[in-house]
Design a binder for these strands. Sequence first.
DNA 1: CGATATCTTGAGCATTTTCAATAGTAGTGG
DNA 2: CCACTACTATTGAAAATGCTCAAGATATCG
Lengths: 226, 226
Amino acid sequence: EVACDTCRVRLVAVCAALDEAELAELESITEHRVLPARRTLFQQGDAVDSVFTVTSGTVRLQSELSDGRRQVVGFAVPGDFLGLALADRYGFSAETLTPATLCRFDRRDFVRLVERHPALLSRLHAVASHELGIAQAHMLVLGRRRAEERVAAFLLRWRDRIAALQGASPTVPLPMGRQDIADHLGLTIETVSRVFARWMRERIVLGVPDGVRILDDARLASLVAD
Amino acid sequence: EVACDTCRVRLVAVCAALDEAELAELESITEHRVLPARRTLFQQGDAVDSVFTVTSGTVRLQSELSDGRRQVVGFAVPGDFLGLALADRYGFSAETLTPATLCRFDRRDFVRLVERHPALLSRLHAVASHELGIAQAHMLVLGRRRAEERVAAFLLRWRDRIAALQGASPTVPLPMGRQDIADHLGLTIETVSRVFARWMRERIVLGVPDGVRILDDARLASLVAD
DNA sequence: CGATATCTTGAGCATTTTCAATAGTAGTGG
DNA sequence: CCACTACTATTGAAAATGCTCAAGATATCG
C-alpha cells in the first residue's frame, strides 16, 4: 500500500510526540484517499465532518463571493492539514489542482484522539499558529504590495515550500493556473501574465512546461525585501 | 484593585475550564499593567517574552515594510490575546491606541501553565483557529473588495465587536484614526476619508466625535453581502 | 485533428493613488 | 482665554497602476 506508507510518514512527522501504540490508534481511524485533479474535498460553509492531511499533490483553498469574485487563501501541499481549526463549518472550499492523495479522519474520532493526547493538540496549535502568521504576512502582500512584488513574493515562497519537499532547485513547478495565482494575489489573470512575460523578456525567469526556472534570484528577492 | 478585578473576569472567560486552584495559579503569574495611549507593547521581530490579554482600551497590531508601508493586521479589544502563537518572535508590532489595561504573563510561566493544563491549550487553540478564520476572511476583503465595500466590511465588523463588549448601539466609537483604517484596508487615508464623506452626504452615517452613528444599516450591509 | 481551455498581448478606461492646498482639532503656553 | 503649533482630516485635480474588453495564440484533450 503505497498511499498508506506515504501517509504514515506524514503522520509520524505531524505527530512526532506519539508513541507506537498511539500511532497505531491514529492509523486505525485513518482513511486513505486517492483523488484525481479538480475534485472538490469540501465547500465553504459545509459542516465539518472530516479532517485531512495532504500526502501528495496540491490542493487549492478558496473563499468566494456570490458575484464570482474569488480569493485563494492558500495552496496545501504534502504535510499540510485541512480543517485543523476544529470549527463547526469550513471557512473555505478545497479542490485538488493535481491528482492527490489524502488521509481523511472522521472529525469525531480525531477530536476524541486530540482530547486524549495533549502532545497532538500542542502540535496542532503550533501548526494553526504558524498558519496564522502566514495569513498575516499575506495580508501585507495583499494590502500594501504592488503587482510585481506580489508575484515575486508568491513565487519565492512557493519555491521555498517546494524546496522543503523536493530539495532546492531553481526550476519551480507551478501546478496552479494563472487565474489561481491571480486570485491568490488579488490581481487579474492579465496582470499576472504580463508580470511573467516581462520577467521572461528580462531573463529573470525562464518559462518551462508547467512552471518556471528562476534565473535571477537576487532580482526577485529585491522585489520582496522589507 | 479595579484592574485586577477586570482582569480576573477576563481570565475566567478565557480559561473557563480551569478550577479555582488553577485560576489562583494563573493569577499568581499575572502582572497587571495600565498604559497610556500610543505606547508600544512589543515590536515585530522581538523575542517573545510576554503574553498579553487586553482588559480595557484598544490596541493596534501592525507589520511594516522598511519603506514605511504599513499593514494593520488587526485591532485588539478587551478579551483579546496577544502572543498566543507561542512563537519565538512576534509577527507584528502592538501599540495602544487609547489608554489601556493589560494582563502580562511571562512567556515561560505561561507555557509551563499551558503544558500542565490541556483545557487551557484547547481554549488557546480555539482562539487561534478563530483568528485564522478572521485573517482568511480579511484576505478576501483585501484581495477582492472595492474601496467602499472594504470600509463597510470594517465598520460593520467593528460595530459588532463593540456590541459584544458594550451592547448593541448604532453609535460606533472609532478609537483608531483614518490612517489606521486605511492601513487596515489596504487603502489611502484620502480614499477612506472620501468614502465616509460620501456616506455622510447620503445620510448613511452621521459623524459624531471620535466615531460615527450608523443611520442606514441595510445600505452598509448590502455593500458586504456575499 | 478539431474543440475547448487557458494564456498572452494590446488598447482604452476606471478606480484609486498621488500631490497639493485647506480646514479642522487638540494640546501648550503666554 | 486665546493665539500658536502640530497633527489629523478633508477636498480637489492630475496621474498611474491595474482592470476591462477584445482579439489572437498556445496548449490540452477527446
